[in-house]
Amino acid sequence: MLELSILGFLAEQPLHGYELKERIKALSGHVRPVSDGALYPAITRLTKAGLLDQRTEPGASAAPRRILSLTEEGRAELLERLRHPKPVEISDQVRFNTVLSFLRHLPDRREQAAVLRRRLEFLDAPSSFFYRDGEPVRAEEAGDLFRQGMLRVARATGAAERAWLTEAIEVLDPADGAQSN
């Protein structure tokens, strides 16, 4: 997700490493902090792969700054990653939020809707944090105030997300939304 965040933010504008780190930290740092030890090697990998370009500009104080920008190959890679997120990028809430943050860069609304449909299908599958005899445990069956709370909050959050996804898919691909209702 770090590489997707780098590509996504640089699709919006060229940035130097510190600015890029601050944007990534704002997006997911409270859940998954980004360290220099992860960010700069990722930037190096993407640059060596021809997905990023670097140029040096005079710094605001004394030290020169390396400005990163997305190459055409980098833009194509970003679009490919957005079109075809990995299963974990659909199932994991933080990773899906990263995909969602940059999904507007996909130019085809039907492709955007297809990604949202995958998330909706995932959310519609029965699941729980807890299982009994191979079946998901519902909040009413948890038998524990705290687990009950987890399950009730997850149910409410999931219902709100499913409602938004359904509305967004209808906006992005009205003909398909009418067919699936």
Rank of each mutant, 00 (worst) to 15 (best):
M1I: 05
L2H: 11
I6V: 14
F9G: 03
F9R: 01
F9K: 01
L10D: 08
A11M: 04
P14C: 09
E19L: 08
L20F: 05
R23H: 14
K25P: 00
G29F: 10
S35Q: 09
D36S: 13
G37W: 09
A38S: 14
L39D: 04
Y40W: 12
L46R: 03
K48V: 04
G50K: 04
E57N: 06
P58V: 13
A60P: 00
S61K: 11
A62Y: 12
A63H: 12
R66A: 14
I67L: 14
G74C: 06
R75D: 08
E77I: 01
Q93W: 09
Q93M: 09
N97H: 13
N97S: 14
V99A: 07
V99T: 09
H105T: 10
L106T: 01
P107R: 02
E111V: 01
A113H: 03
A114V: 04
L116F: 13
E121D: 15
L123C: 10
D124G: 14
D124R: 13
A125S: 13
S128Y: 08
F129P: 00
D133A: 13
E135P: 00
E140R: 08
E140S: 12
E140G: 15
F146T: 09
R147H: 11
R147N: 10
G149N: 12
M150N: 10
R152C: 03
R155G: 10
G158F: 05
E161C: 04
A163M: 09
T166F: 09
E167I: 00
L172S: 06
D173L: 02
D173S: 10
D176Y: 15
D176S: 15
S180C: 05
S180Q: 15
S180E: 15
